[in-house]
Design a protein around this nucleic acid. Structure first.
Lengths: 172, 172
DNA sequence: CGACACATGTAACACGTTACATGATTTG
DNA sequence: CAAATCATGTAACGTGTTACATGTGTCG
C-alpha cells in the first residue's frame, strides 16, 4: 500500500482524496473494499517515515487540500519496489486446507460438506466477477484485473474437486 | 490461525510444541515459513480471550508442558468457524496489478519488463513446488496442498500473459 | 430538503513478523 | 563436542481493520 501510494505520487503530487479516487478507478469494482481512512493513515505514516512531504493548499470555498510529494528517499524506495519481484504471499489455499484438515481430524464436521459449501460460494463469486467484467469496457485495466480474479477462482474450483476426491476416498 | 489451533485443540488437548509439529506435518514443505513463537503468542491470546484454559504438566526430566484445552466458548467458536464459509481474501492478484499500473503511469519502469521478471519468478516457484510434490507420497495431505499451489501458479502465469498483451498493445 | 461529492482525519485494536532469549537432553 | 530435538516464551514493530468524527458545496 505504501509503495503503491508512493509510486502514484512519484508520477505527480496529489492529495489524499485524489489518490483514493485514482485507486478506485484503477481497481474498478474490486476497489469497493477500500477503507475510508486507509489512504490518510498511510500518507501520515509515509510522512512520519520521511518518504513524503506535505504542503497545505487552500482553495477558498472548498476544503483545504494537503498535497503530498515524495522526498528523494521516497523516490528511491519506489525505484526499488518497481525493480524487485513481488514477494507474493503463499500461493496455496492454505487457510481452507487447514480448515479441512481440522474438520477431518476433529470429526466435528464433514470435510466434503465444507468443500461443497465452498464450491457454491466460489461459483457465486465467479458469477459476480464475470458479470462485473461484462460491465467494464473490454481492454480496460479493471477488466484485466477481473480476468485475473476469474482465473484464480477457476483454479481454486478445480482444486476443490481434488479435495472432494481426497476426502471422499478417506471416508469410505 | 486462532481458529486452526482451537480446532486442533478441540480434537484433543495439547501443548504448543505439539501443535506446531502437527501443523508442520499437515502443511508439509509449505510449513517451512511458520514462525517459532507464533504458536505460543496465539495460544496466549486465546487464553486471554477466555477461549482456552491451560494447565502445567511437569514430567520430571523433560521441560514442563503447558497443556491447553478449549473452553465451552472456545468450542462454540470452532463450531462457528467450521460452519461458516471462508471469507477468502481478494481473489485477484491486486498487488502486482497495482504495481504494473503504477509503473505504467509513472513511466519509471516498463510494465512488460516487470511482467517478464514476474513470469520467470513464478516459473521458478512452480518448478520448486512440483519438485516438492514428487517428494511427497501421492494422496497425502501435503501433496494435495501442493497441487493447490500448482493450480494457482498456473492461473497466475496465464494472467501474466494477458497482462503482457495488455501493456504491449498500449506501448505501440 | 436530502443526498451525494468533496476533503480530511483519529483512536483502538488485532494480527502477523522479526528477532531475541533460555535451557535440557539425545544423538552422531 | 557439536548439532538437533524438545520445550517455552517475550518485546517491538508495521500494518490493515473498524468505527468514529467533521464540515462545506452542489444538485435535483
Amino acid at each position: 500500500m505504501q509503495d503503491v501510494l508512493l509510486a502514484l505520487l512519484a508520477k505527480e503530487p496529489a492529495h489524499g482524496y485524489d489518490l483514493r479516487a485514482r485507486l478506485r478507478a484503477a481497481l474498478g469494482p474490486l476497489g469497493g473494499d477500500l477503507n475510508d481512512g486507509q489512504v490518510y493513515v498511510t500518507l501520515r505514516r509515509l510522512e512520519k517515515a520521511g518518504l513524503v512531504t506535505a504542503r497545505l493548499v487552500g482553495q477558498g470555498d472548498r476544503p483545504d487540500r494537503k498535497v503530498y510529494e515524495p522526498t528523494p528517499a521516497g523516490r528511491e524506495r519506489v525505484a526499488r519496489w518497481l525493480a524487485d519481484v513481488d514477494p507474493a504471499a503463499r500461493p496455496a489455499p492454505t487457510d481452507l486446507y487447514l480448515k479441512l484438515v481440522a474438520a477431518a481430524s476433529s470429526r466435528l464436521a464433514d470435510p466434503v460438506d465444507i468443500v461443497d459449501a465452498q464450491r457454491r460460494e466460489l461459483l457465486r463469486r465467479l458469477a459476480d466477477v464475470q458479470r462485473a467484467a461484462l460491465a467494464e469496457p473490454a481492454g480496460s485495466g479493471p477488466a484485466l484485473l477481473l480476468e485475473g480474479a476469474v482465473l484464480r477462482l477457476q483454479a481454486d474450483l478445480r482444486w476443490l474437486d481434488a479435495c472432494a476426491a481426497h476426502w471422499t476416498d478417506r471416508k469410505k
